[in-house]
Amino acid sequence: MTALPVLRDDMSEEEFDRILEKATAASAFLKAISHEGRLMILCHLVSGEKSVTELEDLLSARQAAVSQQLSRLRLEGLVVPRRDGKAIYYRLADDKPRKMLECVYELFCNDD
């Protein structure tokens, strides 16, 4: 496990700026997943690519609501779209959302 950064009084401005940059990226990521609809979309995409229509059915949500949440996830670089004719499919952009979901599951869903 990686050690957490420690803010020190004698830290160089460059070191501090690196930590601040990482904190800004982490904050944007957490904001992107802070909506239950977006979190549920990511949960569904862990098992593989899904069309917008499939996500609507899985979430029991309207197309406009699903599209709005997918737009935010796409903007944050968490999902990637693929068009096939009139259908648009989404998948996780990388392994970061999967790792985050595993952590959330461990914190909130594991009854051990």
Rank of each mutant, 00 (worst) to 15 (best):
M1R: 08
M1V: 11
L4R: 09
V6Q: 09
D9S: 12
D10P: 02
E13F: 06
E14M: 05
R18N: 07
I19P: 06
L20M: 12
L20E: 14
A23S: 10
A23P: 07
A26M: 13
S27G: 09
L30Y: 14
K31S: 14
A32N: 01
A32I: 07
H35Q: 13
G37T: 14
C43M: 13
S47G: 05
G48P: 00
K50T: 05
K50W: 03
K50Y: 07
V52D: 06
V52E: 12
L58Q: 10
L58T: 03
S60P: 01
S60G: 08
A61F: 03
R62T: 08
R62M: 07
S67N: 15
S67K: 15
Q68V: 06
L70W: 06
S71R: 14
R72Q: 10
V79Y: 03
R83F: 09
G85T: 02
K86G: 11
I88F: 06
I88Y: 05
Y89F: 04
L92C: 00
D95A: 13
D95N: 09
D95G: 13
K96W: 09
P97H: 02
K99Q: 14
K99H: 09
M100S: 06
L101D: 02
E102T: 03
C103L: 13
V104I: 15
F108R: 06
D111L: 10
